[in-house]
Design a protein around this nucleic acid. Structure first.
Lengths: 258, 258
DNA sequence: TGCGCCATCTAACAAAGGTTAAAGACGAAT
DNA sequence: ATTCGTCTTTAACCTTTGTTAGATGGCGCA
């Protein structure tokens, strides 16, 4: 299972951003990688580190976190296929902690490999740049989320983003996915208190937008959730109109139920 | 005044991050630039644009803004010497608006020039990477600021960051600087209402931490402001310990007053 | 000189969300 | 099966901040 696995995960993610040729995929297949396993809350890379490898996330979730004013704050969220520390490639001093949520598998890939990729293929170089850029877009959007939405819409928006990003890598096609996040984690991401996170989830449940039971989240009314959140996924840089696909899927679900 | 001016501004900024050799400065001096002037609230580059030049800020302030839920949100702040759209170099699709605050002078510099710089000098390449990276660090810190501090500390933190960044480029040495920002702008940056921004500023004045009159801000108690904000400037990546310098300066001021 | 515009300021009230504390619920380990 | 710890849920109360609306003040311009 392990052999070839890391690069396909990454190829899927890049393919969600740009169209890849078979030459590109051949180049990616040469990726040297060391596999690492982590448990929930393990810190994969720490503030102050100067790693010479990037973390390609294969399974689970990684978040950039920071202990600020005596509470942990989540500043971004990464799904399999992402390389959270790609932008640190040429200036590898970490200013934040990279924390695992749930059981996590990563591939450590030498910085050198990505530099060689960039030189070997203009398209791959562009793809890597886009990958970095979407992280920045996500950060600005995260700021916008915290700044302009109330707790309910904020949580809804986070779940919309998570769903679409999972769908872009072929997961959560049925709007259902496993989540290692506790309500306290959700609170740390959305900058609300844990108690209010609970109130908010219950309100989302009451509105029949989702179910969230014991580590499984299911979005039961996608277009309702999108409307509540004011979610516009263009900032994710995704090639496919996942939202439209999703709407179609949801519509078909609705038909079945009627 | 115009000739040579753009590159010195930029060299100052890079020198705040890494030590530059005279060769590096010679390379920077070859920077081709077109000067542009903008008025307050002008949009220098717009969401959806695909520019082939970067914006080197020479005078005034540029902010990345986004109209989200019918209100303008500021997601980052840039001072002279910064290149707000440097990270868009290789994937130049803009997802946000770059807005001028106050009268602004920029130098438009072709993307090509920065690619050539990176190839010509490893140190300059590293400096450019650091410049991009500090933007990302600032974004994560901005998230942390919105998420973990109340309005008073949030405003204090923003002013601390602004002061240190200005000092790093040789401005605001005496903790006094011109500001084109209205209280409404401050509110848009800190995600508070304009009314509350006013209350907050008055509280900062009442505590004798600063004066803010008709476009001029003066920090009158730097260490008090730093303490209130819980400000730790390491995320700015600055080479010089500006904070220490500042503390010394403030201490000397205090002595004079006694 | 006076007008209009915009920024600042003030006050009263309303709403959203934080805090504390304690009670259930669930799962893992013994 | 029991116990422990963590996660979820509930309730009461309180603080911060938002909202609305109007007053004040400065500045450019006719």
């Amino acid at each position: 299972m392990q052999s070839g696995f890391p690069f396909t995960k990454f190829a899927d993610r890049l393919a969600s951003l740009v169209e890849l040729s078979s030459d590109d995929v051949d180049l990616l297949a040469k990726m040297p990688a060391t596999i690492g396993h982590f448990g929930s809350r393990d810190i994969v890379a720490r503030k102050g580190d100067r790693p010479t490898v990037c973390c390609l996330l294969l399974q689970g979730y990684l978040c950039w976190t920071v202990d600020c004013e005596s509470q942990q704050q989540i500043t971004s969220l990464h799904v399999p296929g992402d390389i959270p520390d790609l932008q640190a490639l040429s200036a590898p001093l970490l200013q934040f902690d990279l924390t695992a949520f749930g059981p996590v598998v990563v591939a450590f890939v030498p910085h050198r490999f990505f530099r060689e990729l960039s030189e070997a293929s203009a398209r791959l170089s562009r793809a890597l740049s886009l990958l970095m850029l979407t992280d920045v877009w996500c950060l600005r959007n995260w700021i916008c989320n915290l700044a302009t939405r109330d707790a309910l819409a904020r949580v809804a928006h986070l779940l919309c983003e998570l769903t679409v990003r999972l769908q872009a890598i072929g997961q959560a096609r049925d709007f259902r996915f496993l989540s290692p996040f506790t309500q306290t984690d959700l609170a740390a991401a959305c900058a609300i208190s844990a108690v209010h996170a609970n109130r908010t989830i219950q309100e989302l449940r009451r509105r029949k937008l989702l179910q969230w039971n014991s580590r499984t989240i299911e979005i039961t009314d996608w277009s309702g959730l999108v409307r509540l959140a004011g979610f516009q996924p263009d900032y994710l840089g995704l090639r496919k109109p996942s939202l439209q696909e999703a709407k179609d899927f949801n519509a078909s679900l609705a038909e079945i139920r009627i």
